[in-house]
Design a protein around this nucleic acid. Sequence first.
DNA 1: GTTGTACGACGTACGTTGTACAACGTACAA
DNA 2: TTGTACGTTGTACAACGTACGTCGTACAAC
Lengths: 255, 255
Amino acid sequence: MAENSTGRGEPSRTLALLWGEPTETPKRKGPPRSVTVDQVVGAALGLADEHGLAAITMRAVAERVGVSAMSVYTYVPGKPELLDLMVDACYAGMTRTPWGRRGWRSRLAAIADTNRELLVAHPWLTEVAALSRPPLGPGVMAKYEHELAAFDNTGLSDVDIDAALTYLLGFVQAHCRSAHDAARATTDTAMSDAEWWAANQAVLARAFDAESYPRAVRIGSAAGGAQGSAWAADRAWEFGLARTLDGLAALIGEQ
Amino acid sequence: MAENSTGRGEPSRTLALLWGEPTETPKRKGPPRSVTVDQVVGAALGLADEHGLAAITMRAVAERVGVSAMSVYTYVPGKPELLDLMVDACYAGMTRTPWGRRGWRSRLAAIADTNRELLVAHPWLTEVAALSRPPLGPGVMAKYEHELAAFDNTGLSDVDIDAALTYLLGFVQAHCRSAHDAARATTDTAMSDAEWWAANQAVLARAFDAESYPRAVRIGSAAGGAQGSAWAADRAWEFGLARTLDGLAALIGEQ
DNA sequence: GTTGTACGACGTACGTTGTACAACGTACAA
DNA sequence: TTGTACGTTGTACAACGTACGTCGTACAAC
């Protein structure tokens, strides 16, 4: 496997799986299928949610659904396509409440919050490259349609709407990815951020000339000391979301 | 290897390497070292720049510098530490011109442009998680110090300066990561974006009800048709950078 | 009822990854 | 001259995705 990204399989085969394969005719030859595609995807989702993206191995998925490793390949062409199905299933499961009469700023904030909740529930999604060539399944389509509707009556052009949505989601993705990376760092290295910081500070103190980096020492120690804590993550979220919406406000205009 | 992220090694050993290891005493026992740490890092950088992050294998690095695979481990504790050194070396190589009398918006735009150039020259950097627990070497420190200096006389607090810089760099990273993912998609799958789009459109056309997703069809086809092209990437960059600076302007205040 | 055939399941195997380990040779210190 | 510390290397292992071949099953045709 080269990398974790969507859209690496044959489009027609992937699309058939995404949209529920009409080849699910009840009468087939051979022995009956012991599980379903949904069960396979569900097992992969469970593994990813519980133990991270690296825990998704074909063998592990197979064991979780109760078949042998190679049998998984009769349900899914390969691991890339399985990733596509997982992503679309996640999007499909999001709750989508109609926008009502709220203003655009409230709507966009809701989009950001909802996507953040999604990425907190499924942190591995921040590691998957699903922006170019997303899996064009029902989940992705419904999510895209719903989020585009939030831009109704903003006066933006179609191109700007797409750009603005991409920009907003890009911020959410970047933020959640950083938060997820920070969380993983503590678990992967069995070393808390405080310990890591202290260990580095001790060596750094006599390794380099503090006067050469006055701002870095002053600002970095203040900002780095609290890094990794939930409080810091929430502060960064509020800061970034406010900046992002302010930036879009300059384009849309207050109303 | 679990994942590609920095800061996974023992801090003291990593820091010693980053800051030039005073254990480079001329008189050692045993046979002389056949290469240097810099050569190892340089070989890894060359591989990554030419063939992507996945091309960095210990065996490939070893072959490029002309030693056996296991000999690399006498220069670098392991692959995570090698990544740390690569990241710091990239940052150290950036050109840093003093800020002069330019306004904050011009300075921040320069930060964004410079970082974009860096990520275009080394696309694999967008795949490395180096935000939490960055390698605290001379390159990272110099870059951090220089970019913090761009916020002199903005009136922001230390905490806000760090948050604003993180926010700005987050946008650059997210944008370049998307661009890099899109570029990789065409090379990895031996299928151009146009082909992929056409193949999907053909199947999608009869697979789902277009009237259920009016906005997605209208806006998506317009925006998706040109996706992946350099022109689209540049448009997204200009759009995002303008939004980001506008958002920060609401915090800093025009001047 | 018999047989042909298509298909699901599975075991084995290959190449690739990071790196632990032990053997071997080298060059300085005593 | 000898002991010792260290660089180099080959071998080996576990885990990964998945190609391939075999086997058994259940429907279709007769």
